[in-house]
Every structure is written in structure tokens, then in C-alpha cells.
Nucleic acid binder design. Structure first.
Lengths: 132, 132
DNA sequence: CCGCATCCATTTGGATACTG
DNA sequence: CAGTATCCAAATGGATGCGG
């Protein structure tokens, strides 16, 4: 698969494949996915641990995010039939390969965040001439 | 910056930095950003060309996406003061470095999309026992 | 040609209350 | 403890019409 097949999504490319790939990228880029995957990097965690570890996530969104990840086969879910219930989550092999790739992007972001924020300041101050 | 600083967002990490990095990842992961950047890979394009090249994008979203990318310094915008107006867009150096990193993720998605979709089918059929 | 403003439908996500 | 269900607010994004 070539670059243009993956990212271009031109009318004359294989749109079907592009759509499927983009769908995965959208999933990865949503508000909580990378945070949850990144948190599970350290090993198996219980629902409550994850909830405390991922600052700001609601119970609802943690549940939804974990369900998506489980459905995609990126995270495994183990229920221990005890009272009270105990449910553990861990990255699968597939999940670990994604983590590696996602970290590259995170590093890019970390490397360039200062430049990006400087660009934003320039852009904004050029629009609001305040003291010009 | 370590892995945990970038992705973990634990309560005891540098939340401020994490939030800023995540903000960039969210931008990259939104519906149109990678598509536009990927399309500009080939070189300078006019607004109308982009609009035709990125299948399915509305004029409004193309404008908004380009503004964001311009503000972040990922895309440059050149206005030719002619009649009718002619506006050209091109990746900046920063934009090109992002393209390289983003392609890694796109390739990961392309490599694993079949496995992910198979996982989804398994998951869904395990939930709806239909003929079980 | 480029793109902004308005209106509106859909989606997303948080707060809360409730169940096994 | 680990979810599910409901309600509601905010963000997202398309369609359309206007303006430089």
C-alpha cells in the first residue's frame, strides 16, 4: 500500500480502504483512547485504578473507551467472579504495537509543541492588532 | 521527556505538559486534518483543488481545517491579489515533519485493519448469539 | 473564486441515579 | 466494585445564502 492510498483519499484511489484506515485513525485520535492505552502501558489494571489514573475521565467515558478497545482487540478484559467483582484490563499484543507507534506521534507533539504554540501566538496577534 | 510524561497523564506527572501534547494529538486525529495534510503532500494547491481532492469535505470544514493548520504553522497560505482571487496552500517544514510521523500511524492502521475488523466481528457475534 | 455567517441536525460527553 | 441508563449541555459538522 502506497502513501497516496493510505492518506490521499483522492476520488480515483481505493476509497473503501482509505475510509477504513481513517476510521482507525479517528478512533486513535479521540479524547481518551491514547490516554487509556498509555496508562495500561505499565501493566494490568482494575477499572477503579484506571479511573483514578486517567485524570478527568468520567466513569461513562472510561467504560465506553474500554469497550471500544476491547472490541478492536487492543485491550483484554478479565472478570474475576468474586464479591465484590474484580475486572482487570491489559494491553494485548496488538495494543502494544499501537502504543509503540502512538508514542512516536506523542514525541513529535512534545518536540514541536513550543513551536506550535508560538505560531499560534503570532497568528492571533496578527489578527488582533491591539497595539499596532 | 519520558514515555510516562508524554502519555500517562497521571495525577503526579506534569499535567500541564500532558494536556498540551494531548491537545495536539486531538487536532491531528480529527476528521479532516490528516486528509488535508496528506493531500498537500504533492505540493501547492488552490482552495478549489483541495475541495475537489478531499472527497466529502464541506467548504466550511475545509476552511476551518485550513485555518487551524495555518494557525499552528503546519500549512502556509498565499493570497494572490487578482480577480478572481487565487489562494494557494502548501505544507510548511513543520507540516512536512508531521506528515512523516502521521504516515507511520497510517501504515500501522493499514497493516492491522484486517485484524481489527476480524476482532470486531468476533466480539459482535459473541454478543448477539443469533444462531447459538 | 474564496470564505464567512447563520441555521439546524447529529454526535459527543458529563452528571447523576440506579443495579448485580 | 464495576457497570448501565437517563437526561441534558456543548461541540461538531452540513446546507445554504451573502460578500469581497
Amino acid at each position: 500500500m502506497t502513501e497516496r492510498d493510505v492518506l490521499a483519499l483522492r476520488t480515483d484511489a481505493d476509497e473503501e480502504t482509505c475510509r477504513r484506515v481513517l476510521q482507525v485513525l479517528a478512533r486513535v485520535g479521540d479524547k481518551w483512547t491514547l490516554l487509556v492505552i498509555g496508562t495500561l502501558r505499565e501493566g494490568t489494571m482494575r477499572f477503579g485504578e484506571l479511573h483514578r489514573a486517567v485524570t478527568g475521565i468520567s466513569q461513562r467515558m472510561l467504560t465506553l473507551t474500554l469497550r471500544q478497545l476491547e472490541r478492536d482487540g487492543l485491550v483484554g478484559r478479565t472478570v474475576h467472579p468474586s464479591v465484590p467483582p474484580k475486572v482487570e484490563y491489559a494491553l494485548t499484543e496488538l495494543g502494544r504495537t499501537l502504543l509503540g507507534t502512538a508514542l512516536q506521534l506523542a514525541w513529535w507533539a512534545a518536540d514541536h509543541i513550543d513551536e506550535i504554540e508560538a505560531n499560534r501566538r503570532d497568528y492571533d496577534s496578527a489578527l488582533s492588532p491591539a497595539g499596532d
